[in-house]
Amino acid sequence: MNVNAGLNPDAAADAPDRPLNVLASAWWIGAFSFREMIRRKRIVSVGLLMLLPVILAVAWRTLDRDGVISADLILANLSGMVYVHAMVALVSLAFGLSAIGETADEGTIIYYWTRPLSRTAIYLGRLWAAQTVSALLVAGSLVLCFLVMTVGNFGILNLDFLRLYVSACLVILLGGFVYTAIFAAAGTVLRRPMLPAILYAFGWEAISGNAPLKLQELTVVFHLRNLMHNPARSVDSMPNLLQELRQMVMREVPPEPWQSLLTLLGVIVVSTLLGTWLLRRKEIFR
């Protein structure tokens, strides 16, 4: 056996000593990581969880035969309360935290580490894969909800409903990207990120909804809801009434939707830059 047979013995010496193109290698890593992530067992459990809004939609169809509650309101509540407050954070938690953290814990990251790949490419590839998996799960759930609400109930299909549905979908998917970016960065730096991430997603993000506006603006949920058209805001429910009153008293002016959009995009960019920087500093001891 000759180790040089069939290989160019000078290949290593001749190879250019520059890293692979960042975007091209991120694409490779992303495509591979996507295949890896959809094979994880957790996709089944998270997928089942994503059926919760569908079950709520089925319940509405089953119980509200007389049409007491409008389809718009149900959709607004499903997207504003169920998806934005819980589902998006949950699915992002499952795939965002593990985007880098899991491959580092398992030790498979070493196979990326020892290639001529910049850490930025590795991070972007893994993040894109996690965001795509999260988005697909959320999108699947949203499509099922739409079908449950509309099949055999075509009367609700008007332009307003469709506009509300499309805008809700876009905002929910954007929320998924934001949360996944945040959790991926957290998973890169924290050894046990689950508890802090849960506290953030279901503690800080949830309780600060009742805080003064300036504090609410520090949450992702606030900006997502600010982007979302919500017919419930105009109805005279007690929480909305209190919020309106408080804003009047404290002369709080909520940001424009475009400001919220910019804020959320900024969170994605900053989280990604931070995560990339953290990954560059990360060391492997396995």
Partner: peptide, 30 residues
Amino acid sequence: EVGMFRRVGFCPESDALFDWLTGREFLTLM
């Protein structure tokens, strides 16, 4: 200079591998 990793081959002690891939798929990716 991560480009220098073209000159390096690393066989880790850790048993972690992409178990769902075939040996050929794994090598081709690497």
